[in-house]
Amino acid sequence: MSSTPNLVDTISSSLSLSRYNREQKTEPGGIHPARHVDEDDDLTIRPRRKSPPKIPKQHVITNTITSYLSKSDSREEVVSVTINISPEVSFTLHKPLRNRSSLEVNACEAIQDLMDAHEFFKIIKNPQTESYKDVLPFLITRRKKFFKKRLWVVRATLKAMSGEWSTIGTSPSIHEEFSSFSSIACSRFGALPPVDMLIKLSVEIQTCARVNIDAVPMGRLVQIFNCMFEDCHLLLRSRTIAKAAPRSGAAAAKSAMERFLPLSGGVDYLIKFCRNTFPGPEVRYQWTDRSYFED
């Protein structure tokens, strides 16, 4: 592993998530430019465009690492990611300085960032790690503030829709509403009308999102959030949610759930990617040069 103990500087460019799939342009050395992730970035695990050849779903990989290593959504807490292709595949991690006037504060934060990244990639490459369920405890304990914010946003957007379901034009049958996922929907909820099924899914997700993560044992938390992830996946397969009008309550709920899902399916994909890409026991990554401070 090529993580470095040098302390803190930042670069002005950071991860470009959507552009990475739209434009396959590389700068000298095979390094893709990056930009900071903000609240409007789409963290869906479902690629919106055909993935570039040989390096599939880059945005899934970068979004997932960003989600697990960022302490919050504020600009100074976001860890953005660049995928380097040449001379060999590796990750470069970037994070802005939080307090440019205090060397001591920045040094402590940089050391914590280094430790967190080391632990995260160690878990990802551990042969005993089978799925996101094995990585979720890291997120809950090391990124509690970030995780609580994600839960709150999902819960709030779905709660805001409580009085809207009956006014939304759902499909007349469960098979049209969920298409190829209709068998799963029927096995979960029987012969409920589509609108009642959507309401029940929404309520189940809100119930899971209200859990007090400070008071529930870790094993139980993993079970609860596994159910929540599955419900979010199913609700996003709803024709009503998928085709939600821009700026509608359904569109806001869709965006919130899509940004939540890299914490599950995105990790599963990252685990497979790292095992296929890095044959050794470690993931190749490094932080940008952070050894000096900007004025």
Rank of each mutant, 00 (worst) to 15 (best):
D134E: 11
K254R: 14
M218C: 13
R259M: 04
K54M: 11
V267C: 07
I45G: 02
V135H: 00
E164A: 15
L192T: 09
T66W: 03
N276S: 15
D295Y: 05
I205A: 01
V203W: 03
K200I: 09
E119H: 06
V135K: 02
C274M: 01
A215F: 08
C186F: 06
F278M: 12
S3C: 14
S12N: 09
W287L: 09
C108R: 11
T64I: 03
V60F: 01
A256E: 01
G169C: 02
S3Y: 11
G219K: 08
S179P: 02
T92M: 06
D116H: 03
S86W: 11
R220P: 05
K95H: 11
P193E: 14
K57Y: 08
S291I: 09
V211Q: 12
A250N: 02
E23R: 12
G169Y: 06
D231L: 09
K272R: 13
H36Y: 15
P96W: 00
R142A: 06
I241L: 11
D289L: 10
S182F: 06
I224E: 11
P172M: 05
I168M: 13
V203D: 08
Y132P: 07
S248C: 08
R75F: 12
S166A: 12
E177N: 05
C232R: 02
D41R: 09
T288Q: 12
L263G: 07
T92H: 04
S13A: 10
S255N: 06
C274E: 01
G280Y: 04
D116C: 02
M228V: 10
I271W: 00
E39M: 09
I224S: 05
S101V: 08
A252T: 03
R49D: 11
C274K: 00
N63E: 04
L43R: 02
E23V: 14
S51L: 04
P137C: 13
L103Q: 14
N126C: 11
T277G: 05
T64W: 02
I224C: 09
F293D: 15
E177T: 03
P137A: 11
G266M: 01
P217E: 08
